[in-house]
Design a protein around this nucleic acid. Structure first.
Lengths: 242, 242
DNA sequence: GCTTGTTTCAAACAGTCGTTTGAGCGAATC
DNA sequence: GATTCGCTCAAACGACTGTTTGAAACAAGC
C-alpha cells in the first residue's frame, strides 16, 4: 500500500493528499498527510528512538512522499516536537485542571498525596487507554525521551513540563507542610523517575501481562500499585542531613 | 582484565600506538589503545547516545586510528558492550558481596530495607566518586541505557543484571515478609526506576549543585535523600488489589 | 480559461555512517 | 637474517542520512 496506492486513488475518488476528483462529495477520507506522518513517526520513534529512525522509514510507513516531512514540518527535529506537542500539551493541561478540581472539592484543606498523585496519573493512564491507537506508544516514547541526551529534546521537554511541575510541587508542599521545601523537590524528582521508568519500560508491561489477564483494567492496576508506594515515600520523615 | 592487557606488554615497553623507539625503557606510557578507546567511548556515548556517536568521533577523541575499533572490538555494538562490562561487572559483584556481608552480620534475622538499599547504592556511589574519571559519566550512561530502545542493549543489560536483581528481590522478600511476592517485584521495579532516573538525569546533578556546595559528599547526600523515600515506599501496606 | 496557491512527487544533493582492505611498521621467534 | 605476529594507518567501500529542487497535479478565485 505504498506510493502506488496514493496516486491510484486520486484518480478515482477520495483522497486528501492534495488531489480529489471533481466529485468532492462523500468519500471517507483516510486521514490527511500530516496526521499520517505523525502517527507513523510516533510509533517508529517509540520503537527505535530518534536518531535510529530515518525519515524514509517514517514516510514509507505513512505511505507519503519523503519530501512531505520537510514540507509540512520543516525538519526532522520539528517533526519530533510535533509528535510530542500533539499529546503532551493536552495531557498536561488535563493534569492541571484535574488537580484544580480536586483542590476545589476539599477547600480550604490541603489535598492528600494520593489525590495529587492521582491527578498526575489519571490523564496519563487515560491517554494510554482510550485513544484508538498510539496512546501506549506515546507513553513509552515519552518515558524514553526523559533520558535522551539530545539537547533539543531536553530543552523542549523541560519547557513543556515547567508549568505542570511547578503546580504539583506547590501542591505537594501544601500536602506535606512539615517537609522542607528542598526535600519536596527531591521527592518529586524521585516520583517522576519511578513514573517515567514504569511507563517507558517494557518490563512493566511484561509484569502486568504475566500476572494478570485483563479483568481489571491494567491502568488502574498499575496506579493501585504505584500510588501507595509513592505516597508512603513522600510522607517519610525528612532526612537528617537537612 | 580483558584481552587488551594480556597481550599488551609482553613486548618491551610501552607504547601502544604501534611505534616505539629502540630505547625500550622509561617512557611514560600513555594508556593502551584499547583503554583510550573505551574511555573516549564512555564519555561520548554518555553525552550523545549510541546512535548519535560516530566511530570517527570516538577515535578522534581517543587519538587512535578509525580502524582500531573494529580491530580491537569487532564492531560498534561490541565496543558499546565492552564499555559497560568494564564497570558494570565489578559493580554488580560488589553489590552482591556487600549484601552478603550485611546479611552475615545480622544472621539469622532479616536485613532492614535501608541496609539492602545501601548495598545497592554504595557500590554505585563509589564508582561515581573515586574513579579518577569516567565514573559519573558511566552512571549517567547506564541510566540512559535503561531506556534505550535498541534490542541488543536491552538484552545485554537484562542479562548483566539478572543475577543481581534476583538476589535483591529475595533480600527484600525476607525484609518484607508480610508483602505478597508479586508486590515486592513491583516495588523493586519502582525502586530501580527512581534510581536510574536519578543517576541518569542532569536534573539531579543540577539540584545538588544548586543547593549545596561540596561540604558533604554529594553521593552520601543523594543516598540520604533517596534511601528514606524508597524505604518508606517499600514498607507501605500492600495495595488492596492483590 | 487563465492564473494563483497548495500539496505531491521523483530525483538528486552533499555528506556521514560502519566496515573492510592491503600496505607497512616494529618486535619476537626460529 | 628471514619469518611471523600484533598492531597501526590511510584510503576506499557501498549504503544510508536529512534536505533541496523543479516539475507536475490539483482546487479555488477571478
Amino acid at each position: 500500500m505504498s506510493s502506488a496506492m496514493q496516486r491510484q486513488k486520486l484518480a478515482a475518488v477520495p483522497n486528501n493528499n492534495g488531489s480529489l476528483s471533481t466529485n468532492s462529495a462523500i468519500v471517507a477520507p483516510t486521514t490527511d498527510t500530516k496526521s499520517r506522518i505523525l502517527d507513523a513517526a510516533e510509533e517508529l520513534f517509540m520503537e527505535h528512538g530518534f536518531e535510529a529512525t530515518s525519515l524514509r522509514l517514517i514516510t514509507t510507513a505513512a505511505a507519503v512522499n519523503l519530501a512531505a516531512v520537510n514540507y509540512h514540518f520543516g525538519s526532522k527535529e520539528e517533526l519530533f516536537q510535533a509528535v510530542f506537542s500533539r499529546r503532551l500539551d493536552p495531557m498536561n493541561q488535563q493534569r492541571l485542571s484535574l488537580l484544580d478540581e480536586y483542590q476545589k472539592a476539599v477547600e480550604p484543606s490541603a489535598l492528600t498525596c494520593e489525590k495529587i498523585i492521582a491527578a498526575m496519573f489519571i490523564p496519563a493512564l487515560e491517554l494510554s487507554r482510550d485513544t484508538d491507537l498510539g496512546g501506549k506508544n506515546f507513553l513509552r516514547l515519552l518515558g524514553r525521551a526523559y533520558a535522551d541526551p539530545a539537547p533539543f529534546i531536553r530543552e523542549f521537554l523541560s519547557s513543556q513540563y515547567a508549568e505542570m511541575i511547578a503546580a504539583f510541587r506547590q501542591a505537594f508542599g501544601r500536602a506535606l507542610p512539615h517537609l522542607p521545601r528542598e526535600e519536596v523537590s527531591w521527592r518529586l524528582h524521585f516520583l517522576m523517575g519511578a513514573l517515567s521508568y514504569t511507563l517507558a519500560g517494557t518490563d512493566a508491561l511484561k509484569m502486568i501481562e504475566r500476572y494478570h489477564s485483563s479483568e481489571v483494567g491494567n491502568d488502574e492496576l498499575l496506579l493501585s500499585r504505584l500510588a501507595p508506594f509513592l505516597a508512603a515515600g513522600l510522607r517519610a520523615p525528612p532526612s537528617d542531613v537537612g
